[in-house]
């Protein structure tokens, strides 16, 4: 069989991804996470009587806790597969990647399993975040005179 024919057949049976639908789902789910974040900040600053700045830390910790717990309970993976970037781009994706890596490599032991692999996916975010923040920070500090 010719290669091009083969490719045609593969393309025919490959699951078609609806990009428009994916985009809309990501937009709506991500937007709802944003609304939830704002709502949590309002709730925390109102009931705990703290500044918006402190309340936003509480909000981040809450979101991380919830997504970490849901990942551990097993059903967050399905939601992430459905919503894709709607949940990967917010901080929920960071917690999700860490917890799923922790659970997945648990069987390989405490040190070489969980210890080595917990940052397997989240590590690149921290690495490139720190490197770029350092680099841009240098530019801003030395060329534009700091904050």
């Amino acid at each position: 069989m010719e290669k091009t024919d083969y490719k045609k057949i593969v393309d025919k049976y490959k699951a078609k991804e609806n990009r428009v639908k994916n985009g809309i789902v990501a937009f709506v789910v991500g937007g709802l996470i944003g609304v939830l974040a704002e709502f949590l900040i309002q709730i925390y600053s109102y009931f705990l009587d703290i500044s918006t700045r402190d309340a936003s830390v509480f909000m981040i910790v809450t979101l991380i806790f919830v997504s970490s717990l849901f990942t551990a309970l097993g059903f967050f993976d399905k939601i992430v597969t459905f919503a894709r970037c709607g949940l990967i781009i917010p901080i929920t994706g960071f917690a999700h990647s860490m917890t799923s890596a922790g659970l997945e490599y648990k069987k390989e032991g405490l040190v070489y399993g969980i210890g080595s692999n917990i940052f397997k996916l989240a590590g690149s975010v921290i690495l490139y975040g720190v490197v770029s923040a350092w680099f841009f920070g240098m530019i801003r500090y030395f060329l534009f005179g700091g904050v």
């Binding site: 985009g23 990501a26 937009f27 937007g31 970037c85 917010p90």
Partner: peptide, 11 residues
């Protein structure tokens, strides 16, 4: 805003 950022990522 969050929706837009997620949409960008999805695209």
């Amino acid at each position: 805003f969050v929706g837009f950022v997620c949409l960008l990522g999805q695209i």
